[in-house]
Design a protein around this nucleic acid. Sequence first.
DNA 1: TTCGCCATTTGATGAAAATCAAGGCCCAAA
DNA 2: TTTGGGCCTTGATTTTCATCAAATGGCGAA
Lengths: 244, 244
Amino acid sequence: MNFDIRMAHLFSTLDDNQVRQVMESSHISTLQDGESLFETGDEANRFFLVIGGQVKLFRVSSNGDQKIIDIIQPGNTFAEALMFMEHPIYPVCAEALGPAKIISFDSKRFLQILSQSFSVCFRIMGTMSQRLRGLIKEIDDLTLQSATTRMCAMLLRRMEEIGKPHFTLPAAKGVLAARLSMKPETFSRILQNLSSKNILNTKGNEIHVIDAELLRSLAHLESVLGLEPEVHCALSSAKSLHSD
Amino acid sequence: MNFDIRMAHLFSTLDDNQVRQVMESSHISTLQDGESLFETGDEANRFFLVIGGQVKLFRVSSNGDQKIIDIIQPGNTFAEALMFMEHPIYPVCAEALGPAKIISFDSKRFLQILSQSFSVCFRIMGTMSQRLRGLIKEIDDLTLQSATTRMCAMLLRRMEEIGKPHFTLPAAKGVLAARLSMKPETFSRILQNLSSKNILNTKGNEIHVIDAELLRSLAHLESVLGLEPEVHCALSSAKSLHSD
DNA sequence: TTCGCCATTTGATGAAAATCAAGGCCCAAA
DNA sequence: TTTGGGCCTTGATTTTCATCAAATGGCGAA
């Protein structure tokens, strides 16, 4: 296996020797769709790097609903923050979303390397800092915004990521719904609604955005709320989205 | 001022010399109730330690609603995670909840000290790790649970913190409502509801829990995080959980 | 004490999203 | 080709909570 872990941000400042040390404790796994990597409450003495496919992190409520916390893409690490706790326990479940390939690393071993290199320390702190920021944003999304707003924001992110108004949804609709904290039915209805407003077209998992401006105004509903009168048209059409 | 910053977890492993260095860039402020420390979007070149009173961290939507992210108790630091970002910007607003006393520190200066001491590095990583966990737990609360569930969980936490079924709410009801992402009206109604079911009695800000078991079952508490013998930042009001 | 300003409570109403229940679609296996 | 099982969609209904509006109550200042 000649995959260079330095492609991952976390490992990018390691020298050859350090990479070798890290790799000594590593283990590559290939996962089937839906195969579990770890569960909430498991002892967390390893962390992970996705090198193929996707891994979803989620929590399960007592009624069986899943809230997807994050979907980890290839090249990204996860669960590395836990190595700094005394009795680390995974606070989420992780399982493959489709077939996936991952490398796992021994946390203790990595801590040893960490204690030799400030640059790696700083690197990891930067990563954690970003994650913190991301989670705050997430809380923001969940509390200050409606399901429609979240949907529009997601579509816009995806659109800008691709760079074209025509793109494919990054996962099955049901999965995205869980990611956005709504039921599949709601997801479907909102999409259908946006479509009926001629803001976009859908065909299966293909999305074609027609009116990106309107979409944007829906996604930024709140920041728009207090502003100029002219945005009111966009706003009012936003409000009427659900009422007819 | 002879307050020893080593009381704070983050500084606990500093030697006298390092403490002196850190203090050189520090600044003590006394805040009135409601006085702002910083706002979302401000350049973040300082971080803070609360030594008296409380500081609330929150985000604001344009309609004026506040979502309280955290309430920082004396002895705790906040905004320290930002020093690892390239162009650090506070992602939340901070203001005093009642009169408060805080010390601020220069981030750059502290980074220098950090680059001399692995123990401080590890310390800060541990802190960040806990914050991450806390935020995940938060997302959990916001999505998988109803307003009543959140209320019950909060009451239980508070009860266990105090150790008696009779206690005082840790802040004004309106503030707690925002902390739990609900309107004051809803907060009031839920409390009234619990009371009418003889689960608890209320009188002003005094709560007397009658049926803790029932309360617990309403909170749907999966003991996912139940076993956490550790640090606990007992001061901070609930939170702690994350991997990524 | 009275006044006025708060935070809180209470009631009535409405809107968003969950839930319940079918039904349709697509694809893959028989 | 037919069949069956995931997904997704659609419709009807219900629940939860926000919103609007109007008391109530406490507490400090005049």
